[in-house]
Design a protein around this nucleic acid. Sequence first.
DNA 1: CTTTAATATGTAGTAAAATTACGTAAATTA
DNA 2: TAATTTACGTAATTTTACTACATATTAAAG
Lengths: 285, 285
Amino acid sequence: MHSQNLINVITDALPSLNKSETKVARVILSDPDAATSSSIASLAKKAEVSEPSVNRFCKRFNAAGFPDFKLKLAKSLASGIRFVNRNVDPDDEVSSYTPKIIDSTINTLALVRDKISHMRVNQVVDKLIQAKRIYFFGLGASGSVAKDAENKFFRFNLPVSSHDDVLMQRMLASTGSTGDVFFVISHTGRTKEVVEVAEIARRNGSTVIGLTAADSPLADMCSVTLDVDVPENTDEYMPMASRIVHLVILDVLTTGVTLRRGPDFLPHLEKIKDSLKPTRYKSES
Amino acid sequence: MHSQNLINVITDALPSLNKSETKVARVILSDPDAATSSSIASLAKKAEVSEPSVNRFCKRFNAAGFPDFKLKLAKSLASGIRFVNRNVDPDDEVSSYTPKIIDSTINTLALVRDKISHMRVNQVVDKLIQAKRIYFFGLGASGSVAKDAENKFFRFNLPVSSHDDVLMQRMLASTGSTGDVFFVISHTGRTKEVVEVAEIARRNGSTVIGLTAADSPLADMCSVTLDVDVPENTDEYMPMASRIVHLVILDVLTTGVTLRRGPDFLPHLEKIKDSLKPTRYKSES
DNA sequence: CTTTAATATGTAGTAAAATTACGTAAATTA
DNA sequence: TAATTTACGTAATTTTACTACATATTAAAG
């Protein structure tokens, strides 16, 4: 199990801290990286408190002591949401915006990893296993996610298709029936067309799975929703991370389905892999 | 700048270490997480060497001393490649395969972040900026990546299209000319059709950009190649990470192009964003 | 095969760091 | 205002890490 980012925890707890603890917190938050490599003495001095105060502070946040606290802090800095400004700046060079964008994606994924509901994943896998037919729907950026999903689920030897055309989606939704699964992908969950399509499908007794934002109109309409709270995009230069998250969640679902199918299914996957070989140049290894 | 993962560094250095250093390395590598929270004394005991040997070991890897080493190790563990077996197991539960898949994706991205050539990114951005027209080509899984790229580059107010149909690709490639950029996406870089298409485009004087594996036939054919060495997929249950990597790299390129266009271009982006508003249900916030 | 030099490893002492126990001060409540 | 709780610091203790030095091991040269 992954724990939440220490820096966020401290920030959240800030109002409930007492005088000296607040002093310590401020010093740590002002430069967390420096804190990880300083001694308890120097930190106490900087915060103008005594050494035991720092120690107590650490224990308050479930650390065994100061060294353990530093360790946890260091891990937070490396993996978690970067505390410092990680937004792309108008005068950033390649060498600075490249890691920023990748880091930001990594952070989002780490967030999803810690927050995603395993129960829901299981429910969705259930529905997908039972499906006689699967339709993946998405518009705009989610269209390519749907397309990717089609590609992946094709391997399961059952009728799959993806559609990024509203009219087509409407028609399919209205002709759907029990046994059909409509997998609707939408970042916001508030695109009218998409919500309507989900409603139509639902009315016809089909299963509707949503990969979308929590508490959105689309989420309300679905049989099961895999909701992901991808932080909103504030920076003009920062790309939308939700597509990536959706793709990775679909990876998870694919794996879930594969595992449920059991080991007897593996030869089939191999066959598909092999079928592609003649289209490729041999590797010189 | 990101430094390389400490665990990898130690693994690589393993053959060049002397007896006691090897012992220390083995103990650390066998359970890096435990190492981060143990004292120099207990580690020395476990490795059956003296404390100074451990200390010397740390200094060899550019740490100030043992505590500093632990810190760096902790950071490596948090961000970098998980060392322990992170493969999906046939009897994994949702709660175990979900983080495994996400972690694996994160690790791959971290690797790309540290290895990607900024010079190449710059070169590709150059070409894209100069393009009169951009075609994104991909087959299979790369088809959806191409589609996503089209979606993103559409915002730049220049003719873009994506194609996952071989015949269409051939025709377009053969009618291309200077000023046209063909952006070819392929995981392996060895699909014959794709390589041929690249060759045709190249012969006609078009610029061909490859987002593919290094040292592949496709890479050889391109004007510029953004090569990514995504580790090969060994596990049957593990999804292919290259699609994700390609998407993120396209995010980077989009940002690169946006920045080059300068701040005058931002209002245009806003306009596109606003155009979608009427299609959405209002948020209740 | 010995001698010499270099490298590798360990011992013991020293310094630094962290933790604990305890006492005093401040704040809260009755 | 007294009693009680909570907050904080001092000083002693313990743990931890580091340094200087000595011994052992290995490699090289005679």
